[in-house]
Amino acid sequence: MTKSTSSGTDVKTGATSWLRGWRPAVTMAGRNLRRNRVRTVLAVLGVCIGVLAVAALGIFGNVLALGANDAIGDIGTQVVVSPNSDTGVESLSTTDVAEIRRAVDDPAVGDPAVVPLYSDNGIVAGASSQTFATIYGVEEPALAFEAAEGELPDRHRQGAIIGAGVATDLGIGTGDTVEIVGSQVRVVAVLAETQTFSPVAPDDAVFLPESAFAADGYAQALIISESGETAQAAADAIRREVNAREDRVDLFELAAIVDEINGFFDLLSTFLLGLGAISLVVAGVSILNVMLMSTVERRQEIGVMRAVGVTRRDVLRVLLAEAGLIGAAGAAAGTVLTVILVAALVAATPAVDASLVIDPTNGYYLLLALGFGVGVGIISGAYPAWKAANERPVEALRS
């Protein structure tokens, strides 16, 4: 028990001694830097510009990636199953749809919704205007879409469900009557406007009951999962089960597109960070030059310090503290300027969503640039400090 207490005391005493050794070194370093203000300011400015470049470019790249993810939305959770015309399959039969449902009816897949669709094109006319739209036949629209007006039925038996774009073009709403391919149909719901890409483009479509179509089979089936991972699992299950003997269906996995887009923005962010890092490397060379010139000009001063008993370690501490203070001052100034610059750009560019800029992930780039700036300062000052600390006092005094 006594040994444990003694060991803890030794550690605490050692840490206290280490801090006491650095306090006078930092004080002296600050005084030395103030002796040549112009040179110090220029070195700090170099680090500041480098940190600003790294942080700003990193944040801009991240904001672009976040904006793209926000625009893409949930398309990665959807899989489109279409008949494989290359093998002579022109439509999806009810048997094909049943096999698709069995394939994805697995807890590991997440039991996604399967929405088969008939498809056609035609003129949709309102009271005073008309437009060309895609016309779908769907039995369970609530599984795939949301209504802005009216209510989506669990089983679509009558009436028309109008996309937001079609409703705007025709100036119609719930309760109005539209003419679709010569037939008068009442609007039972208007879909909410989609904020992201969708393979069926519901904004410019009209959805009728399946009974309105005389086609022999479905044009496609939309698989809607809770996540991109479960969507990929559903696609794999469909390939194994439905395409076991022949490739009856083609699958379009939107998650693959999302992965490619995310990969592009990751590459873009890395490229932008690389550009910013070049500025910090230049700043590091500037600090190296400043510290070398400082040690040469103060060679006799360092020799006197060594002659009166100042240890190599103390000299090394002072010079490293000088380089560290330059890096820390430049990094802090660069971080503050980055925040101001980003805030000014957001204020001047209304199209940029402020929530993307204040996203917590952007803080990573501020911390990265701050740490990088301080590190560049210390690393750049390491060689001049070592060189000065290891010079023989007699030779320093002779110069």
Rank of each mutant, 00 (worst) to 15 (best):
E241C: 01
I287M: 08
R155W: 04
G363Q: 09
I162D: 10
L356S: 06
G263R: 12
G334A: 11
G122T: 14
L366H: 00
M291D: 04
E260D: 14
Q195E: 14
P112D: 08
F213C: 00
E140C: 08
L191I: 08
L170F: 11
N121T: 10
P112M: 05
V63H: 05
A351I: 09
F265T: 05
E146G: 05
T134K: 04
K3Y: 14
V41I: 14
V336S: 01
Y118H: 13
V81W: 07
E139T: 09
W18T: 01
D204L: 11
V310T: 14
V187S: 08
A142W: 05
Y364G: 06
V281G: 03
T16D: 08
T335M: 13
R155L: 14
A142H: 07
T177A: 07
A328H: 06
E322C: 03
G217L: 10
V346I: 10
S183A: 15
A144E: 00
A329G: 06
N36R: 15
L280K: 01
D169Q: 13
N289V: 13
A333Q: 04
A212T: 12
Y364M: 11
R155C: 05
I135R: 07
R245Y: 13
L356G: 02
R101I: 02
H156V: 08
E246A: 07
A55L: 09
F372D: 02
A43M: 05
G324D: 07
A244W: 09
V342C: 01
D169T: 13
I180G: 04
V26T: 11
D169Y: 03
D259Q: 15
E140N: 13
P153Q: 06
V200W: 04
S129F: 12
L273W: 06
V200S: 10
I123N: 10
Q158G: 12
C48H: 01
T95N: 09
M28S: 02
A148G: 13
V242F: 04
G284N: 08
A321W: 01
L254R: 01
A388E: 04
L272V: 07
S93A: 11
L117S: 06
K3V: 05
S128V: 08
L345W: 13
L251K: 04
T295H: 02
V81A: 13
V138K: 03
S6Q: 09
I302M: 05
Y365S: 06
E301F: 11
A332N: 02
G309W: 12
D120V: 08
E391K: 15
A147R: 12
P350W: 13
S93I: 12
E322R: 02
L356P: 00
I358L: 11
M305Q: 14
P107K: 11
I223F: 00
R239H: 14
